[in-house]
Design a binder for these strands. Sequence first.
RNA 1: GCGCCUGUAGCUCAACGGAAGAGCAACGGCCUUCUAAGCCGUAGGUUGAAGGUUCGAGUCCUUCCAGGCGUACCA
Length: 543
Amino acid sequence: MKNIKEHIQEAISSSLAGLDVKIGLENPRNPEHGDLSTNIAFLLAKRLKSSPRKIAEEICRAFKVDSDYLERVETAGAGFINFTFSRAYLLRLAAEILTAGENYGRCDIGKGKRVNLEFVSANPTGPLNIVSARAAALGDSLKRILNACGYRAESEFYVNDAGMQIEKLGESVIARYAELNSIEGIEFPEDGYKGEYIYRIAKKYTPTQTVNWNKLTEQDRNHAGLFAVRDNIKFQDYILRRFSVIFDRWYFESLVRVYKKHIEVSYALMNKGLTFEKDGATYFKSTIWGDDEDRVLWTSDGRPTYFLPDIAYHQDKYDRDFEWLIDIWGPDHHGYIPRMKAALQALEHPPETFTVIIAQQVNLIRGGEKVTMSKRAGEMVTMDDLLEEVGVDAARFFFLQRKASAHLDFDLDLAVKETEENPVFYVQYAHARICSIERFAEGEGVSGEPDWDLLKEKEAFDLMRKLAQYPMVVESCGRNLETPRITMYLGELAYSFHRFYQKHRVVTGDKELSAARLGLCRAVKIVLFNGLDLLGVSAPERM
RNA sequence: GCGCCUGUAGCUCAACGGAAGAGCAACGGCCUUCUAAGCCGUAGGUUGAAGGUUCGAGUCCUUCCAGGCGUACCA
């Protein structure tokens, strides 16, 4: 049995007799416009020197309606052609969903391409913040979506466990340690990490045996810094796991440095004549690829900047045979995009193999006012605070409802207070309700293969039409690296189901009809489950 | 100054260049029946402004206006 889109595309192509045109099919927003619609007549108007309306009518006339797929084909508006699915197609589809199970909705637009998704990559200097939570939800969900679209996607967290900030972190820990142990003469560094969590770490910390409190060395600071890094990473991983985000790989900047990958990359750029020295620093000529200014790779005192090992890290992803790199960065890094794109192009990677998604900022609203957050002052609402307050499912669903590029106001009071009216619960409730019906049906002895032909109700067919849209939604999200369509779709599917439920009792004295309706419910349950799974949101069996 | 993001219903936000939508809030109805965390109904719009491209613009281009973020030899 052919895919219905292919069926329509072939049927139109044959009536166009050799005209080479891509026939786009989309879901009309208005149900009166059928189940699929094409704008092909508009696109052909110029070439055929005719009006869209006339072309649409001609295509319509030539179109042989096969009732295995379609009930109706008609022109509308200024030249749209609308297709309405046939009863036979929809019933067959419901049966197919039961067979396909978790595979329903998958496609193969990715063709096995290996994708590396890097996200969160927060500094190991403290707890995760709210933007990290958003990036985590987005990245993890995109990984699930891409895998459902036939890509082989892996997730990666890059840990910046090297460089100045680690020393600074160590200095902060040592200062707090000194404070806790009444050791004199250690000042808290002016730009140190002031959060309460540093005390927590300092309490667990044991300084090096050789420590001289009057003269702290770089080694002392690094020792404390790495201790704090390990503690922070452990906590970050713990919170991410609670958020249903499990990274395939944690990649350490210190490893880049140990294996001198950054030096390799530095030489590679130098040998291409793409670097120069100025005021004792080494620059990369990123302006060649449109960056605003050339960027420093090595500082004048001989340290690599953050940028250089990061280039090496990205080169390493290519070396590990990833064909497409997707990075999700916070809004504070958007200025960083041109230089990284420049560096990767300089290393001869085609620009389309590297995509950056900026996860825009999140404003937390509490008591109708923006919660002010200052990392330096240590006033943060952290990711674990958020999980504590609104829960995993609500938090993920909220984040994924918005496209990444949109700023997001997250009203904490509302999310907590309105738990019962939360969109995620609406969708989950539909799933739980179907599970409940299944339990009831079992008790009533409803079983056996559904006789789909018994389904006649309008609401049942509305539901099947919705089920038919699901694969297109997944594919579209995979193509656009977006999630809001899925949350939106699940809301619509749940709505269609609740309507059906309200109007037609599933389990009745008529066992045959009950089995057919139960079959439809099970198809809905499968799609709800699959969709929620792409979001990393649970599908509860009872609520 | 320059760069990026955003501006759509009272609020939060959708809408591959295709035929303006949802949820919440408001108002009015529906539980002897498989979960009322549900359903039905009412109301709500010059898509920030003005031009342009197009058969067709919330969407693309230009110029404004408003809000946010960024603009390091930090990460």
